[in-house]
C-alpha cells in the first residue's frame, strides 16, 4: 500500500469501512435466527431489517474516517518526528481503542450490557492486543538487528578491500 497523501488516506478509510461491513455481514450470515435475534437485542449494529441500517452505515463510515485520521497521525512524521515503530503501534492501538470506546458509547452499539460479554470482550481483546504488541516489538528488533549485523559485515569487508587496495 502506498501511504502517500490523500490517496493513502482514502484507501485507509475504504479499507476500515469495508472491514467493518464485511465482519458484521459475515456474523449475520453465519448466525442462526435465534442467535441473530439475541444479537439484535444486545447491539443496534445487528438490528437488521433487510440489511445494515443507513444509520449504522454512516456510523461505520465516521469510525473509518477517524481510524484513518489516527493512523496518519501516528504512522507519519507530520507530528511525531522520531519514534520507534513499536511506540507508534502502541499509541495507534490505544488511540483506536479509545475512539472505538467513544463510538460504542455515543452510538449506543451495545445498549444492553451483559457482564459476561464485556468480560469476554475485554479478555480476548487484551490477549490479542498484548500478543500483537509483543510480536511487533520482537519483529522490529529482529529486523533492526539483521540490518545492523549486515551493515557491519559490509563495512568490514569494504574496509578490508580499501586497505588491500592501498597496500
Amino acid at each position: 500500500m502506498e501511504d502517500k497523501g490523500l490517496k493513502g488516506f482514502i484507501y485507509c478509510i475504504c479499507l476500515a469501512f469495508t472491514a467493518q461491513v464485511v465482519v458484521v455481514a459475515l456474523i449475520q450470515c453465519l448466525s442462526s435466527e435465534s442467535v441473530a435475534q439475541k444479537q439484535a437485542e444486545i447491539s443496534s449494529i445487528f438490528s437488521m431489517q433487510g440489511g445494515i441500517s443507513k444509520e449504522t452505515i454512516l456510523q461505520f463510515l465516521l469510525v473509518a474516517f477517524l481510524t484513518a485520521v489516527i493512523r496518519s497521525f501516528f504512522m507519519s512524521d507530520l507530528v511525531i518526528k522520531n519514534a520507534s515503530l513499536s511506540i507508534r503501534m502502541i499509541l495507534l492501538f490505544v488511540s483506536e481503542i479509545v475512539m472505538i470506546g467513544i463510538a460504542v458509547w455515543q452510538f449506543k452499539w451495545f445498549h444492553s450490557f451483559d457482564k459476561e460479554s464485556i468480560i469476554g470482550f475485554v479478555l480476548s481483546f487484551s490477549i490479542c492486543f498484548t500478543l500483537s504488541i509483543i510480536l511487533t516489538i520482537k519483529g522490529e528488533k529482529k529486523k533492526n538487528d539483521d540490518m545492523n549485523e549486515a551493515l557491519h559485515k559490509v563495512q568490514k569487508s569494504q574496509g578490508e578491500k580499501i586497505t588491500s587496495g592501498v597496500d
Binding site: D3, S76, N82, N144, M147, N148, V154, Q155, Q158
Partner: peptide, 25 residues
C-alpha cells in the same frame, strides 16, 4: 558513505532511519 553509518533502524512506510557517526539522522 556506507562506512560512516553508525546504525540503521526500520522506520514507518518501509523507510530506514540512518544514524551517522556524528549522530546525525
Amino acid at each position: 558513505s556506507l562506512k560512516h553509518i553508525k546504525s540503521l533502524r526500520a522506520d514507518i512506510n518501509h523507510r530506514i532511519r540512518i544514524t551517522m557517526d556524528n549522530d546525525e539522522q
